[in-house]
């Protein structure tokens, strides 16, 4: 697939700084400024492990809560999990900065985990 990002003046490096550069840049300066490699590392961890965790939670939720026969519900969750993981990865790298990337994962992930835990899904 051809990469066709516009060769705008700020192109050349893609990183924390320009991943979501533009209008929102000023607002983001309030957050602590980490070295660039740390931001990328943090996003990679968020994408690979965080995304996998979110996909797993979703798969469990499907398996337990989908109103269908048990093997059907389990299978649906498994089949959908890879799409969810992909979506999570796209979010992590599209988010303005690494903090937001994590928040975006935790926002659906934590309530889901809590709900599963309360209903005995991890028993």
């Amino acid at each position: 697939m051809a990469s066709a990002a516009p060769s705008s003046p700020r192109s050349g490096t893609a990183s924390e700084a320009d991943a979501g550069a533009g209008a929102a840049a000023g607002r983001r300066r309030r957050l602590p400024r980490a070295p660039r490699w740390l931001g990328i590392l943090s996003r990679c961890v968020a994408a690979i492990l965080g995304g996998y965790a979110l996909a797993s939670l979703a798969a469990i939720a499907f398996a337990l809560w989908l109103p269908a026969a048990r093997p059907e519900a389990v299978m649906t969750g498994m089949l959908a999990s890879f799409a969810i993981h992909t979506g999570a990865v796209v979010w992590v790298f599209a988010a303005g900065n690494a903090w937001r990337a994590w928040i975006g994962l935790l926002l659906p992930g934590l309530p889901l985990a809590a709900l599963l835990w309360l209903t005995g899904g991890f028993a």
């Binding site: 066709a4 893609a14 533009g22």
Partner: peptide, 9 residues
């Protein structure tokens, strides 16, 4: 465009 650029990366 920022989105597209981060996706390119």
């Amino acid at each position: 465009e920022g989105f597209r650029q981060s996706m390119a990366w």
